[in-house]
Design a binder for these strands. Structure first.
Lengths: 244, 244
DNA sequence: GTATTTTGTTAGAAGATTCAAACTCAATTC
DNA sequence: GAATTGAGTTTGAATCTTCTAACAAAATAC
């Protein structure tokens, strides 16, 4: 009777039981095992778990039916599956088979809000043939353009929303131009090299000024704590700073 | 270096490393732990696993960077996340926060095909303001109609596509009208009752004919193997048949 | 009504993922 | 440089999911 939310795995079992029940009234271990491609022994364990949670009526060695709670939960999962499947086939023009497979993978993390909004979306689409045709055409057009750049259509898109910390990005010291100041945030590298840098005063929080760093200069010149230092480009690349 | 596909969990770790790296060049255990809300010790284990698979450069007690393979894999996950997030915010009008949460849950099962098609969809939508406005309006209209029937907008929808076996549905014997034939598929119940039914000839594969079953008849009359039997409605409900 | 086949269970084991607690090493402070 | 802080690791344990192999019960066949 616990009401912690179901694991994706248990949701799969529940959905399988639901779908089998629609045709056979009751579900048997074997059928569930076949549907989910697992062994019979795994089903036994999952059934015990679902029974514990009050979602199925289950007696050892007998058939399985859904309780009312189980029926509600199963319908909810099934609904998510359908709405995704509908979306994939009727708007994205995918084959039923591919749509089904993708829906299986995505249905579990689907929030109630997404479910509701996608339902509304698909009603909109399905009730206006000309609209849906227009979109489908446009999609297939863009799809040709995208081509097969790589396995998931990746194309160095602008990072628009990764920013969930507000921090400014870090740069390595080579990114600063002569005259620019930075605050040292990290010193990479390890062992001796790192120790040497630290001893020169290159430590967290220090302000740093790049004095000379023309494109061809290899040792570049910097100022830290009023000391003037020479660093090889290679070393400079280990010092991560925030621009000031 | 194995190329078995990543578990959702490891994908999450990879994505976190990617996002942290964008700002900090390198990722540290602590930061990953914070982002994913797990303990530092869990991160250590995950990092070892990612390093095994050749996706990250990792030395104990040092910072983490992505290998080329890791970068590709991470971009792929990240791309999925973004496309979903874009879809949720820009077409379904969800808040960034809710969109992000839902995307996290759904990105893992997303196939390459879905990713590509949704990219095309969002390009279509984003490049035609009037189209997207029209859809958004329609959605918000339908949303009001749907109201809050229940926690995922479920509304006994017609089951359109559950049928992945071709079997005809089963009915219990009470569903058959007088004169109809059925084939016995299952006999439910247990113990004595079930045994008795079997002894009367009610077994798998037998043809059955309902002879008399007016609405008020309680013992209904049936014929199996040329024997005429009387069954209580209660018993009849245990006999699952296919219509012939 | 016995024998065989099918179905379901148990037991034992393995891999993932996670945690708390103890420990180690590196970094910073004094 | 010694002491303290803190980040990262190890250890040991728990949960979940799955498997194989052996076993038990039920259903079917003979």
């Amino acid at each position: 009777m616990s009401n912690t939310s179901l694991s994706p795995t248990l949701e799969d079992y529940l959905e399988a039981i639901y779908q089998i029940s629609l045709f056979n009234k009751v579900a048997r271990s074997m059928e569930i095992a076949d549907k989910l491609n697992v062994k019979r022994s795994s089903v036994t364990i999952a059934l015990r778990s679902l029974a514990d949670k009050g979602l199925i009526n289950y007696q050892a060695r007998s058939y399985v039916t859904l309780t009312d709670d189980g029926m509600n939960a199963a319908r909810c999962v099934d609904k998510k599956h359908h709405i995704l499947s509908d979306f994939f086939t009727n708007l994205l023009s995918m084959s039923e088979q591919d749509a089904d497979k993708a829906a299986c993978g995505m249905e579990h993390g689907m929030t109630a809000e997404v479910c509701k909004k996608m339902t509304a979306l698909m009603k909109t689409i399905n009730s206006d043939k000309s609209l849906s045709e227009k979109i489908k055409m446009a999609i297939s057009q863009f799809e040709k353009e995208i081509g097969c750049k790589d396995d998931c259509g990746y194309k160095s898109l602008t990072i628009s929303k990764v920013v969930d910390d507000q921090k400014d990005p870090l740069y390595d010291l080579n990114a600063l131009k002569p005259g620019e100041h930075g605050i040292i945030e990290r010193v990479l590298g390890s062992g001796e090299l790192k120790k040497r840098l630290r001893e020169m005063g290159v430590t967290h929080g220090q302000q740093i000024l790049v004095e000379r760093a023309a494109p061809l200069d290899d040792p570049i010149e910097i100022k830290v704590r009023n000391f003037h230092l020479s660093l090889r480009r290679e070393e400079a690349s280990l010092i991560m700073v925030k621009r000031v």
